[in-house]
């Protein structure tokens, strides 16, 4: 999987589990470094997906961040205490 070269100091949660990120790191990078394989399932077939491009092109890194669904995990920098959830299928407007 992935290995971190430096220490991680920013704490946030993914699906309720504590995860550590390095300062300035994106949500997608932190999740991959933490061993998360798939971050979302598609709205079409429900298949599992994970970041493909890490540069904002593919939208396969979509996650729910602090209650906002369908955000690009590779473009959002982790902040302390952030609550991240897997994006399951389509967004629910509630």
């Amino acid at each position: 999987m992935f290995r971190r070269f430096d220490a991680a100091s920013v704490a946030f949660t993914f699906e309720g589990m504590p995860v550590m990120a390095a300062a300035g790191e994106t949500v997608a990078a932190a999740l991959l470094a933490a061993g998360v394989r798939s971050v979302r399932t598609t709205a079409v077939s429900g298949s599992a997906r994970a970041p493909w491009c890490m540069m904002g092109v593919c939208f396969d890194c979509l996650v729910e961040i602090d209650g906002v669904a369908n955000r690009q995990g590779c473009m959002v920098v982790v902040s302390p205490g952030m609550v991240v959830r897997r994006q399951v299928g389509a967004k629910d407007l509630g």
Partner: peptide, 24 residues
């Protein structure tokens, strides 16, 4: 190519620049 764990080489490089190396 849509399976989790399959990425663009550039994506792996982005992670490397962020201090995260891919093993296996």
């Amino acid at each position: 190519w849509t399976l989790p764990g399959v990425m663009g080489a550039g994506a792996v490089q982005v992670l490397l620049k962020a201090g995260i190396g891919a093993e296996r």
